[in-house]
Write a protein that binds this DNA or RNA. Structure first.
Lengths: 331, 331
DNA sequence: CTGTTAGCGCATTCAA
DNA sequence: TTGAATGCGCTAACAG
């Protein structure tokens, strides 16, 4: 049997309730009594029982992190780093992470069972019909997704996309394609919006035929690129909604002997781990994934602690990282 | 206030304990009583309180998954897929995953606080001095690591390495280098052992100068490759302890204009996601990472349920996947 | 087959 | 400043 608060109390010569107060730093008490109790706890290696405490306080000390199955495998996912950042931030505050994959559109079990005090939801595959009822149950923060009235943290995709396209425009490109896995994903849709804005700002028309989706299959860049390759005239630049599409596009181009960036420039989005290592190194829009996780975790802690109930949407700055795939000389 | 078992019992016209038995399927009871109770629970939307149950049964329904900080980021880690497999397997059995990063050599907090019924420890950075005491506290399974007397599941690295080297030998290679991030990692050391065995089996000497470590830094392939490139005569083949080293080696060779596989053949280990997509496609030893996670999770469930207390070491078969980097024509 | 009773370990009233 | 009493919701041992 593990050491309980009664053992600590007995050893310190006080009652369990006094021990409880000392251990939790609540109420006033004589410093020496407190010290005696803390010492006893230390000597005994006392660890409060999570369940007993949870039962009494209705607090779990856990935050659920939910990711949709579509974003798996974690190791290739945009959200891997976000997960780590959340874990790291919560760990420092004594909270734990319950990691859970959403395989269908039913609410995560960890929330249903009351195992967590709050929820971070990664990605856009979880709609309002699921989120809104959940939000009434417990604090909740969306990461990389926005639903009105719900706390969220996401990157400034539009500005990032605009910066990318403007960079290509400044290279003199006039025919810039946009490719994405799917435009049904709001995150990618925002990148498309930025692309359109940049074109419009420069008086260029938006041309449907230069926009291609690949679908959610693996290697989804192939169908997208096929559409572009069927054009009478290849665009001189491709802006991809994420790095994986960009790298796939480069692969297809190189397979056909089309040199990148000489014939076709390529710019990606996310600035993931691979970007510096592909050939040529990929120019990409940096997304502060770690920071997204950190901000989400901190917000969740605030909510769990009952502060500031008004929903807040945090948008983090992105930044174009110039390498060589856009035609610049850099690293 | 949430609906409790008393509400269910009242509605079904029975006592709470009867309701408890019905809900948990314990003991015999009249089928219609059970049905009535289950219906009442459903109608009320009853959710058992985890803490109350945990307090009464001393079971948490959670398994901790611990990964050493060295293996981060998850998204590039060998263990990302293992994590998912564990989550998936446990989810099916109603268990939850507490994800935790080990940042120093102190025992994971989730275990100390009794938040989990068992522990899966990923990787080799956690030594006996930490594992052995933990194991006395709770069920524990090591993944990709072995400590005598502790349950573990790991890939058959030696056989895999032997198969890889024998394949290269069958191509006629006589000077085969071995590179690894570090030989201090037991997992990589086993791959070196397989390499040596294969050489010995074929009457070839083990040559120190053909074995190079890179260290644990990012891009650790550079120092390793520098050692090899300083040799009077370049080896005709390189066997790398993991894909990341292999891909880095190919990059260095190609930077110097040395064609792969014509001048130097390369074989990797892990058969990770990138292997088919690099140029040339990487021949690599497949490691059943998903299965490792699944087996570990099932074993953990057995242990948690009190079956079979004798420690067991499970070694899963690996398999050489031949592509083009070894000089074969395949995909 | 079912109900009564007791207790899991803790935090929190309320008295003293 | 401290202690005694109470209850969080559930399961298990024991009666009936």
């Amino acid at each position: 049997m593990a050491v309980t608060i009664r053992d600590v109390a007995k050893r310190a010569g006080v009652s369990p309730s006094t021990a409880s107060r000392a251990l939790n730093g609540k109420g006033r008490m004589r410093p020496e009594t407190r010290a005696r109790i803390l010492r006893a706890a230390r000597e005994l290696g006392y660890r409060p029982n999570v369940h007993a405490r949870g039962l009494a306080t209705r607090v779990t000390g856990c935050i659920g992190v939910v990711i949709a199955a579509r974003h798996l495998p974690v190791e290739r996912s945009f959200y891997g780093l976000v997960l780590e950042a959340i874990e790291s931030t919560l760990d420092q505050e004594g909270y734990h992470v319950v990691f859970s994959v959403l395989r269908d559109q039913s609410p995560p079990k960890c929330a249903q069972e009351g195992r967590v005090d709050g929820l971070a939801i990664l990605g856009t595959d979880i709609g309002p019909e699921l989120v809104l009822p959940l939000r009434k149950q417990l604090p909740l923060v969306l990461v990389d997704h926005a639903i009105p009235g719900v706390d969220s943290v996401l990157p400034d995709s539009e500005s990032g996309a605009r910066a990318a396209v403007e960079h290509l425009l400044s290279h003199g490109h006039k025919e810039i394609a946009f490719i994405a896995e799917t435009l049904a994903d709001p995150s990618f849709a925002r990148r498309l919006a930025g692309y359109r804005e940049a074109l419009a700002d420069h008086g260029l028309p938006y041309r449907e035929e230069l926009v291609a989706e690949g679908g959610r299959r693996p290697q989804s860049w192939r169908p997208a690129m096929e559409k572009l390759l069927r054009l009478r005239k290849l665009p001189t630049a491709i802006f991809a909604a994420n790095d994986s599409m960009a790298i796939g596009a480069m692969r297809v181009l190189q397979e056909r002997g089309i040199p990148v960036p000489e014939e076709v420039a390529v710019v990606g989005f996310d600035d993931g781990d691979l970007a510096p290592y592909v050939t040529p190194p990929l120019t990409s829009v940096f997304v502060p994934r770690w920071e997204m996780g950190e901000v989400a975790a901190r917000r969740l802690l605030e909510l769990v602690r009952g502060e500031e109930p008004r929903a807040r949407q945090v948008m983090l700055a992105t930044e174009l990282v110039v390498r060589r795939s856009c035609g610049c000389g850099g690293g």
